[in-house]
């Protein structure tokens, strides 16, 4: 059921007025590629080796000798028209009313079709929770906790992805990557609220999305580096 539908024609419902549509703005002029967001995500979400819900890509522009190198933080774009949700055969991928796209792990059969459908490469699936340390060692208490937390929250053999740290959002906090960014390059908020910082930044600095030609309508915006 779409909870944001009007309860009476012509009158916006309470839910319409109050339900945010979460998005993020990343200022590429500020990002210097320190990987703090990557590490914060790993610590917060206990992701096993090889799984990066938050990543940094490095790119170049220009021609020699005028070449610039730029860091690009990427995460799940929480698309308004997510291709992962479209291809999911079981209905395990759903978009919440606040715009966050999640995987209901108990419905996912692990076909990995969503991973092929996501042009941003934001999805991962692991067959087992692996330790970062050499095989043969016992798991440390922290690893035992992380393994259990991962299995309970994300699961083994199913698709996993960033969900904007929705448990933190429920507590009124920003996602871990936003909080950890030392350069304040990331801003999180309600895209539907014209007074929110994200809306103002997008409007003022002409925020762009990655590869709009994909047609997914991402909700992560970038402010150009130059």
């Amino acid at each position: 059921m779409n909870q944001t539908q009007s309860l009476s024609a012509g009158q916006p419902s309470f839910l319409e007025l109050s339900m945010p549509r979460y998005g993020m703005v990343i200022d590429l002029k500020r990002c210097y590629g320190c990987y703090a967001c990557v590490m914060a995500c790993k610590v917060k979400n206990h992701t096993p080796p090889g799984v990066f819900w938050s990543r940094i890509l490095k790119g170049e522009a220009g021609t020699y000798p005028n070449v610039v190198r730029q860091a690009l933080p990427v995460l799940c774009m929480q698309c308004d028209e997510p291709s992962c949700m479209e291809v999911c055969p079981t209905g395990a991928t759903v978009k919440l009313d606040n715009g966050i796209v999640i995987v209901e792990k108990d419905k996912c059969m692990g076909c990995k079709y969503c991973m092929m459908a996501c042009p941003y490469g934001a999805r991962y699936s692991v067959d087992k929770w692996e330790s970062y340390f050499p095989d043969g060692l016992e798991l440390s208490p922290y690893e035992e906790f992380a393994k259990q937390a991962w299995e309970e929250r994300s699961g083994i053999g199913v698709a996993t992805k960033c969900d904007f740290c929705r448990d933190r959002i429920a507590e009124g906090r920003d996602p871990a990557c936003v909080e950890a960014c030392p350069a304040n390059a990331r801003t999180f908020g309600d895209l539907d609220d014209p007074e929110s910082e994200v809306s103002i930044l997008i409007k003022k600095y002409r925020g762009e999305v990655l590869n709009p030609e994909f047609g997914n309508k991402p909700k992560v915006y970038y402010l150009a580096p130059r």
Partner: peptide, 14 residues
């Protein structure tokens, strides 16, 4: 190849 083959019966849901 499925990560959770026991849920294969859900494959035709959408």
């Amino acid at each position: 190849d499925l990560g959770s083959p026991t849920r294969a019966v859900l494959a035709g849901m959408k």
